[in-house]
Design a protein around this nucleic acid. Sequence first.
DNA 1: TGGCATGGTTGACGCGGATCAAAGCGGACC
DNA 2: GGTCCGCTTTGATCCGCGTCAACCATGCCA
Lengths: 232, 232
Amino acid sequence: MSSCETCVVRNRAICAGLDNQEIVALNAIGRRRSVSAGEPLIWEDDDSLLVANVIDGVLKLTTSTEDGREQIVGVAYPSDFIGRPFGQTSKASVVALTDARVCVFSRNDFDRFARSHPELEHKLLERTLAELDRTRSWMMLLGRKTAPEKIATFLLEMSDRLAETGCTPITRGPAKRFTLPFSRQQVADVLGLTIETVSRQFTKLKNEGVIDLPARRDVEILNRASLVALAG
Amino acid sequence: MSSCETCVVRNRAICAGLDNQEIVALNAIGRRRSVSAGEPLIWEDDDSLLVANVIDGVLKLTTSTEDGREQIVGVAYPSDFIGRPFGQTSKASVVALTDARVCVFSRNDFDRFARSHPELEHKLLERTLAELDRTRSWMMLLGRKTAPEKIATFLLEMSDRLAETGCTPITRGPAKRFTLPFSRQQVADVLGLTIETVSRQFTKLKNEGVIDLPARRDVEILNRASLVALAG
DNA sequence: TGGCATGGTTGACGCGGATCAAAGCGGACC
DNA sequence: GGTCCGCTTTGATCCGCGTCAACCATGCCA
């Protein structure tokens, strides 16, 4: 029996509107799975055989060029949906950034289930539209923002995202202090920069007293207003 | 009566699966509208009051910074869907690039109609997922590709898109020669470059015999293989 | 406690693409 | 045909970020 308590709760996020019987049915076709940090779950250009719902942890969606350049095109947090339903191939790899637990479904099973449960499809549509909005605003960042603007925007986004998903034990609202689920290289891959530029911008913000960097991956926002100003 | 023949045909694209009676019902809540080149249809950050289906013409989706930098985050071709259903605000402006005809719906009407027609929602979901895939692969271009790679990728994409939507009177398959629906500035806004860089890369490709530029907005692909190689 | 591996920082330098400026177009209109 | 006007091209210069290389911090294991 795969339907643990947390799994049910997280799946509920994509199920609001379904009645309890349906939620149980969905859980019945899902299988819980642990993924450790760095471990891939889905490969770019592979047949789309599975989709999943994130229970906890953070995962990255990436695309790469043949010569090894990588771009992170999305980040999945708890209760986010990953994989490509209704499509033959997935256009992005999915790799865990932290140890993560997911609830995986065979794509065929999930597609069939979704098609016969309009409320679930509706929820999925809403999420996909929201993700598209987020992705488009990230295009503006990649195409038109400077390195300092990128870093500031990134820190603000992280502060919001990590607070809202409860990855930091902090009351609601943007987190003042948080632990990045990214290495410097991964931050660079999100922002379309190099690791050196990311590092330099971080220390610059630290020297200016805008943020503090108490540990490798920890960030404390000291002056949110100037971050907002810098983000443009 | 707003449901002209083309409108019905184009709407049919998002309606496959609905029976005829439903298609007629959808057309009944839509209103046909002409938009001339350069005219805006939806404004960034405005209340999302209308959604639309493109009958013909090409439109751009853009986001801008306060200081006027612009990024084109999407392009809508005939039978594409624009606007933000199930959302309070639209995160992108929509402006016609060419004279265009669209079939507009009040968002409320459309949302209500969609929620009671699962087949339509499913179609919408499939389209949104496909658009998300396209958008993500564009992120790779914006974040990691060089100017020559960007231009080559752009030309190949245009060649595919313009052929497939029938904007050029050419048999199926990628178009060898086509008219860009973009000015140089707009190409720059798609690729995250400046107008000067776009111009220089175009003339470079022309000098190398990869493409020909018979008129301002016309492109002829002379050597598709090297474009593919350049696109990376 | 020392050695090593991994990841992050810092510095010197060069290049790709932005910026600034001026000179071609080519179409619309008279 | 002439003369605008907006768009595009071309040239000169600059600078932000990438590249290359060395150095430093941290944590792990012997």
